[in-house]
Design a protein around this nucleic acid. Structure first.
Length: 565
RNA sequence: GCGCCUGUAGCUCAGCUGGAUAGAGCAACGGACUUCUAAUCCGUAGGUCAGGGGUUCGAAUCCCUUCAGGCGCGCCA
């Protein structure tokens, strides 16, 4: 709609003595297409012009010189409603999409700017549970959205590969691991050791001291501790990479917390030099006033903490990537931590404070309550992906048994369903994990979008044509259903912009669901192949455009767009 | 106790930088496949937008307050 808003604004702005961009912002899409395609509310003008809004609307309707695209204007109540010419609308939208292809909806606002995004960041030696899906798929989608806006995006997987927990892992492995080389089912074994440690720890609190001691040895560079840590690290990363491959997600850097171990000292010095630290109960802290609890940087035993390593990471990233923004896609329960980091940077007088953006999201819970890795109360991601893929395979066997490369499609659709499930709603909501919901492929789901795309591709394939150029006569696209699709297509760029600005991929999800529904309605009302040649050609061009936008939108969310399913 | 988040149809959720009769999906019921993939579409039914104040020409949307739920609050990450 942006292109149409601009054309209307060009003509309307002079009458109001406004900037065209102000008019663009004020223009709305009416709730009902019978009221028009665009609307300008005149209420805000009433006070200044000392006239009733309906009068202003009527007056503007009379004086306005209509732009090319506009068929007529109508003053209704306090609104000035614009009706676009159906064929011109079709022409402008479809030409724009054919010209831009996969770059349709993109912009160049971010060209020359860097953005660092920190997401997924699972813990070494722990299984990848469904609880890790939100950060993983949100981060991936946000990365793609900003790339579409022209930014150079640096994706970082800040692995949880350091901390006292590794002391615990080492203790458990030494006590009950039987020196297992961990060549198979490594994560499973490590996970069981981890759970066992926390069970035993209840009975034998001295284990906690042993774990702390081992972590201290690790921080001191002790050979045995490092060897074991490296073993856990290697087998875990191998496992994670397999999962990321399956999800189609890549990172530029796997720089976890351990990467910053040798940078922590400098970071600490830097904070101390700013003169904002103090010693409290033997620990080094930055007091943050009455509103926030102090930020703890060094434990009384000298060991570093999460916040210390995060500060070191911030300093490093600033120097290495010169980012305009550093985005952290991390659960809502860590809001306080990021508030503290930001305030520490502010107190140091660093502009870096403004670059830090925390993108929070709600927790994934089980119907029985919060997930807990320690207590083994969780659902494995692999298990979910397997189940979804198997269920899709069944449906394919039933509905489309002759489909080529069934396994590949089943994987794409099954995984698409799981990813979309995590991206269709606003990220702030808590998610109660529900098998029925994950394995449902009807309605507002990833498979629905993929199906609609495959349906488009199928029509194009059956047309026997390769190119779908626009005919001169576009009257085949004047039906209500086709017009609705065209208007929706024209809003893709706005959806991308909004999704990126608000770090909310669900905006794109919702847009795609609307587009798919509009298209399916059109598909069910209008025949495409076998109509009069001009009608067929124009409708094929529309189908082609829908396929392009759906494929592109699915990509931005991280879903595959199979040709058939 | 303090702070952050959430509360919209039976269920899951859109809409929230204020705008015209509050929208989808699931579930229920009734329709549409000799025709481009029915993982689709159409129709029916379903709502004190948690409650109460306020701001405004106009409030689901902004402000205040109460209630309910989630999360967090110095040596975990």
């Amino acid at each position: 709609m942006q292109i149409f808003k601009e054309q209307v604004a060009q003509h309307l702005a002079p009458l109001l003595d406004w900037e065209p961009s102000q008019v663009v912002d004020a223009l709305e899409i009416p709730p009902n297409s019978k009221m028009g395609d665009l609307a300008f509310p005149c209420f805000p003008l009433a006070a200044k012009l000392r006239q009733a809004p309906p009068r202003i609307a009527a007056d503007l309707a009379e004086r306005l010189e209509l732009p090319q695209v506009v068929e007529k204007v109508q003053a209704v109540g306090g609104y000035l409603n614009f009706f676009l010419k159906p064929t011109v609308l079709a022409q402008q939208v479809l030409e724009a999409i054919q010209e831009a292809g996969d770059t349709f909806g993109n912009s160049e606002q971010g060209v020359g700017k860097n953005i660092v995004i920190d997401f997924s960041s699972p813990n070494i030696a722990k299984p990848f549970g469904v609880g890790h899906m939100p950060t993983t798929v949100l981060g991936n989608s946000i990365s793609r959205l900003y790339t579409a806006l022209g930014y150079n995006v640096i994706r970082i997987n800040h692995l949880g590969d350091w901390g006292t927990q590794f002391g615990a892992m080492i203790v458990a492995y030494l006590k009950w691991g039987n020196n297992d080389p961990l060549t198979e089912d490594a994560i499973g074994k490590l996970y069981r050791l981890y759970v066992k440690f926390h069970q035993e720890e209840e009975k034998e609190p001295s284990l906690r001291d042993e774990a702390r001691a081992w972590f201290n040895r690790l921080e001191a560079g002790d050979e045995e501790a490092t060897r074991l840590w490296k073993l856990f690290y290697d087998v875990s990363l191998k496992n994670f990479r397999r999962t990321y491959d399956r999800l189609g997600i890549e990172f530029d850097h796997y720089t976890g917390e351990s990467f910053y171990v040798d940078k922590v000292e400098d970071a600490l010095e830097r904070v101390k030099a700013a003169g904002i630290t103090e010693i409290s109960d033997g620990a080094l802290v930055v007091p943050l006033g009455d509103d926030l609890p102090p930020c703890l940087l060094q434990k009384s035993d000298g060991a570093t903490l999460y916040a210390t390593r995060d500060l070191a990471a911030l300093f490093y990233r600033e120097a290495a990537f010169n980012p305009e923004r550093i985005i952290y896609v991390v659960a809502l329960d860590q809001s306080l931590h990021f508030q503290q980091l930001k305030l520490v940077l502010e107190k140091m007088g660093l502009p870096l404070a403004d670059a830090l953006v925390h993108v929070p999201f709600g927790l994934v819970k089980l119907p029985t309550g919060k997930m807990s890795t320690r207590r083994g109360h969780m659902v494995l991601l692999d298990e979910v992906l397997e189940e979804a893929t198997a269920r899709v395979a069944e449906i394919i066997a039933e509905k489309n048994p002759h489909l080529p490369n069934k396994e590949e499609v089943a994987e794409q659709v099954g995984i698409g369903a799981v990813i979309f499930n995590n991206l269709k709603n606003g990220r702030m909501r808590d998610i109660i994990f529900d098998w029925d919901e994950v394995l449902n492929f009807d309605g507002e789901t990833g498979p629905y979008l993929q199906y609609t795309h495959a349906r488009c591709r199928s029509v194009l394939r059956r047309s026997g044509q390769q190119e779908f150029t626009l005919p001169a006569d576009l009257t085949g696209l004047t039906d209500e259903a086709a017009q609705q699709v065209l208007k929706r297509l024209s809003q893709f760029g706005e959806a991308i912009d909004k999704a990126a600005q608000t770090y909310e991929p669900s905006t794109v999800s919702r847009y795609l669901l609307d587009l798919a529904q509009d298209f399916n309605r059109f598909y069910n009302t209008c025949r495409i192949i076998g109509e009069d040649p001009a009608v067929e050609a124009s409708r094929l061009a529309l189908v082609d455009a829908v396929a392009t936008v759906l494929r592109r939108g699915l990509y931005l969310l991280g879903l595959a767009a199979p040709e058939q399913m």
